[in-house]
């Protein structure tokens, strides 16, 4: 069964199409990188799937059922820049927010929830910082707090938006480790990614996107020079040594 199936997804911004008739399928247990040039609509794709922005058309199925009935199965790591880190709250508090969907309206997080949140922080190596005000964390630490929050969601399919941007080596390692763990547990992970050099190391599936999908499937099959040329068009020349590496492989 496919973990995610998207059909005929169209998103426009003021009549200009950002995504046009996007359709693809992601198998369960895969680690997929969403690759494409700037302005290709990668983040927009994730947000449209998660219904965070309005769309013109599109049918989205998660594990064979319509999206809105499968909310509980979804985990999300947004870009760090999307929230105000001056907000008066602690790291542990942010991770606890990942449990709010499970707790339900009005009810308070109990001991069990706090335990789960602490465990998630420990997994990303942030247990010492649980009471730290979030503005006093480094960029990488903030990213790990977001990872821990997604972890606490205990989802089946995870969406991450550029998690590797501006993070330190320790955080990068934590992210990769977590992705591998999720994969081993049979969970599905989709990651918006822009560093072409690391694609083959990180992901077993890729989705090449430029307003509509150029290719989608196992990395070995889809991540080819020809497809990349089609995805990036004229801007491929800026890829430099990347293209050399690729050409050698092809």
């Amino acid at each position: 069964m496919n973990a995610l199936s998207v059909q005929n997804l169209t998103v426009t911004y003021d009549k200009t199409p950002v995504l046009q008739k996007v359709g693809f399928e992601i198998p369960k247990g895969s680690l997929t990188g969403i690759i494409g040039p700037n302005g290709a609509g990668k983040s927009t794709l994730i947000k449209a799937i998660l219904q965070l922005i309005p769309r013109i058309s599109g049918d989205i199925q998660v594990y064979g059922k319509p999206y809105h009935r499968q909310r509980r199965l979804i985990g999300y790591v947004p870009q760090r820049s999307e929230v105000d880190w001056d907000f008066p709250t602690s790291a542990l508090d942010v991770v606890l927010m990942g449990r709010y969907g499970h707790i339900g309206l009005i009810k308070r997080p109990g001991k069990k929830e706090i335990q789960i949140a602490k465990e998630a922080l420990r997994k990303v190596g942030m247990e010492e910082y649980q009471d730290r005000q979030i503005s006093q964390l480094s960029g990488g630490q903030q990213q790990r707090v977001f990872l821990a929050r997604a972890l606490a969601q205990d989802a089946q399919i995870y969406f991450m938006d550029e998690p590797f941007v501006g993070v330190d080596a320790a955080t990068e390692k934590a992210i990769i480790q977590l992705m591998q763990e999720w994969k081993e547990e049979g969970k599905t992970v989709l990651v918006v990614h822009h560093d072409l050099q690391t694609v083959e190391d990180y992901f077993d599936h890729v989705l090449l996107l430029n307003k509509s999908p150029v290719g989608c499937g196992p990395t070995q099959k889809v991540f080819t020079m020809e497809n990349l040329k089609q995805t990036y068009g004229g801007s491929l020349k800026f890829l430099g040594e990347n293209s050399v590496v690729l050409q050698e492989r092809v």
Binding site: K47, L50, Q51, L52, R71, I74, Y76, P78, E82, V83, D84, F87, T89, V94, M97, Y100, G101, L105, R149
Partner: peptide
């Protein structure tokens, strides 16, 4: 703090 995430959780 994070209205998008809240919407995602169905709040």
């Amino acid at each position: 703090f994070d209205p998008q995430f809240a919407a995602l959780l169905g709040i």
